[in-house]
């Protein structure tokens, strides 16, 4: 993939956000908050960082992106379509019968989707498995995993985090979307996570943090993570859930609710003006 300038990356992220709104409005259900919040990071990953070839989605040399929090899939689908994995027009089939865009990702349905997810906590173990395979094969590619902060309620994640440290998986980068919300409320109310930094550090990981909407910061932090040689790296990405749509920002009730036609139009207007 050719790498894009920051201005071009911002434009891609804006288009991805518009896609997300259009897809969810049409589907009538789905999860806007996390998807909108991660659009900047996805744009940077797919248009600047990842070594991948959309017309060769199974190339053994590719970097892998494992989406562990499957309900974020609108941002994955929109980014994959924008990157050329499948026609943009297909985005409007999200969650409909006979669509390749399942409500939660299915690796066998759509090119570019590396894993099936939905039940939280499962992607990170698969990312660890892929990273272990990379080590056995002495391969050069890297494994990126996307998890959410509230996903860390699941015990399986911590099992995987221990294993990544044990095997010193320096080909594994876990990006945690720290947006402080989950379905039923704020993460601090539902299940306090306390310091993810301290937790990861005590589990033997290198911890980096970034502002998930500042492009210079995103690019520099991910590059630093890629170059770290001693073991697995976690990037705590501080994001605003619903970013880019004023009435959705920081509101947990938009975690799992699609906009209606009127709300979608208002959101699209805001996004178009922001370009």
């Amino acid at each position: 993939m050719p790498t894009l300038s920051i201005a071009e990356l911002k434009k891609q992220a804006n288009l991805i956000r518009q896609d997300i709104i259009l897809m969810l409005e049409r589907a009538g259900s789905g999860h806007p908050s996390g998807a909108l919040g991660m659009a900047d990071i996805f744009a940077v990953l797919y248009f600047q960082i990842l070594n991948h070839t959309p017309h060769k989605p199974n190339s053994p040399l590719r970097d892998r992106l494992i989406l562990s929090c499957g309900h974020y899939c609108p941002v994955l689908y929109a980014t994959l379509a924008r990157a050329g994995y499948f026609p943009l027009v297909e985005l409007k089939t999200l969650r409909q019968i006979n669509s390749r865009l399942q409500g939660h990702p299915h690796n066998l349905s759509l090119p570019g989707v590396e894993n099936s997810s939905g039940p939280l906590g499962q992607g990170i173990s698969q990312a660890v498995g892929m990273a272990l395979a990379g080590k056995i094969d002495q391969a050069k590619h890297q494994i990126f995993c996307i998890t959410s902060d509230a996903e860390h309620n699941e015990g399986q994640l911590w099992e995987a985090i221990m294993t990544a440290n044990k095997y010193q998986l320096n080909n594994l980068i876990n990006i945690v979307d720290c947006n402080n919300i989950q379905i039923d409320g704020k993460t601090t109310d539902i299940m306090p996570l306390l310091s993810l930094r301290k937790k990861y550090e005590s589990f033997g990981w290198k911890v980096l943090e970034m502002n998930g909407h500042n492009y210079g910061n995103i690019i520099a932090t991910i590059k630093q993570a890629k170059n770290y040689q001693k073991g697995p790296v976690v990037i705590l990405a501080h994001t605003i859930p619903g970013k880019g749509v004023s009435f959705m920002e920081n509101k947990y009730d938009w975690h799992g609710k699609a906009p209606n036609k009127e709300q979608a139009e208002k959101a699209l207007q805001e996004l178009r003006q922001a370009v």
Binding site: G129, M130, A133
Partner: peptide, 13 residues
């Protein structure tokens, strides 16, 4: 749980 997830990741590779 992690064992089976890791196995799945290895299989996908």
């Amino acid at each position: 749980q992690n064992m089976l997830g890791i196995a799945a990741g290895l299989a996908l590779a």
